[in-house]
């Protein structure tokens, strides 16, 4: 890992919350406009964050707090490693550990709502994990390495040869972002059957920690999307922003699915698309690296 990679990685750790928080603010604004409301100012997320931090603490068990710190710190580790252009498989494995920490937090108190949310969250992991791992494999078939740095050294944009993998990744990312129709582990609004699912037992500064982690997650996910057009990177950034806008529209027009549907869609369409894409590059382009 070069000094440059360290620098970029550390810079990402500092800047990601600002970008992520701002994008969430844009999300709320646009969502409001789509629903015919004016909506909060784009900086509202940051106001909310500081308001939450200032609240009196109310906790259920110590375990719930410890795991949520793990969720934040491991997600930060994954962000650092992605921007430091490390091994994609390891990044996804760390992300899985981080996701599991959120589930452990939900499981660490006997609360019916957070427990159901936790179980649903592991179903979400079961849905998106294979897609992420297979996407890494498909990228490897093009670049010859699992390292993110290899994507930058690879001349062509990945999107051109991996269009179906890209679509599959979009499915996985909607699940990972917990947006409709895949917001099954934590509904967006608390007045439903799930209350707030995995987040039910968190409040105040701990909810703020979760929010902060979501900002990191959002940046991580969009950065991964941008890798599909890494040269020149500004097209990749535009691509990621376009994807984010698409997610907002889908979020607003879709209702929540059941977990069985989610699993079927992500496995049949997601995994299926990646398989077809791998066959495509094998048969049509014939440019899989033979090692």
């Amino acid at each position: 890992m070069s000094g440059f990679d360290w620098l970029i990685g550390l810079a990402a750790l500092v800047l990601a919350p600002l970008v992520g928080g701002f994008l969430r603010g844009v999300d709320r604004k646009l969502t409001a406009r789509m629903q015919g409301r004016i909506g909060p100012p784009v900086w509202q997320q940051f106001y909310d964050f500081f308001k939450l931090v200032g609240k009196t603490r109310a906790v259920t068990t110590k375990g719930a707090l410890v795991w949520i710190w793990g969720y934040l710190l491991l997600t930060m580790l994954a962000v650092f490693m992605l921007f430091a252009r490390q091994d994609l498989l390891i990044i996804f494995f760390i992300l899985a550990f981080a996701g599991a920490c959120l589930v452990f937090g939900a499981f660490s108190v006997r609360s019916p709502y957070s427990q159901i949310g936790g179980h649903r969250e592991i179903m979400q992991m079961l849905s998106y994990e294979p897609i992420l791992l297979l996407a890494a494999v498909a990228i490897f078939l093009q670049t010859g390495t699992f390292k993110v740095s290899g994507i930058f050294e690879h001349g062509e944009p990945l999107l051109l040869t991996l269009p179906l993998v890209f679509v599959a990744v979009l499915i996985a990312l909607t699940i990972k972002l917990r947006k409709s129709p895949f917001d099954i582990s934590a509904s967006e609004h608390a007045h439903q059957e799930l209350v707030r699912g995995v987040y039910t037992e968190y409040s105040g500064r701990h909810l703020a920690l979760i929010e902060l982690t979501h900002w990191y997650e959002l940046v991580l996910i969009l950065a991964f999307v941008a890798l599909f057009w890494a040269q020149p990177l500004w097209i990749g950034v535009l691509l990621a922003l376009a994807v984010y806008f698409l997610e907002l529209i889908v979020d607003n027009v879709e209702a929540r699915l059941q977990w069985g549907w989610m699993l079927s869609i992500s496995w049949a369409a997601g995994v299926g698309f990646i398989l077809v894409n791998i066959l495509m590059i094998e048969l049509l382009f014939g440019n899989v690296l033979r090692l």
Binding site: V103, F104, F107, V109
Partner: peptide, 23 residues
């Protein structure tokens, strides 16, 4: 890929049952 994701499910749930305590 599918198998290793499935592994996450049953181990995480088992740990979850062990740590599920009354407030």
């Amino acid at each position: 890929a599918v198998g290793s994701a499935a592994g996450v499910v049953f181990w995480v749930r088992w740990i979850g049952r062990l740590i599920s305590v009354v407030s």
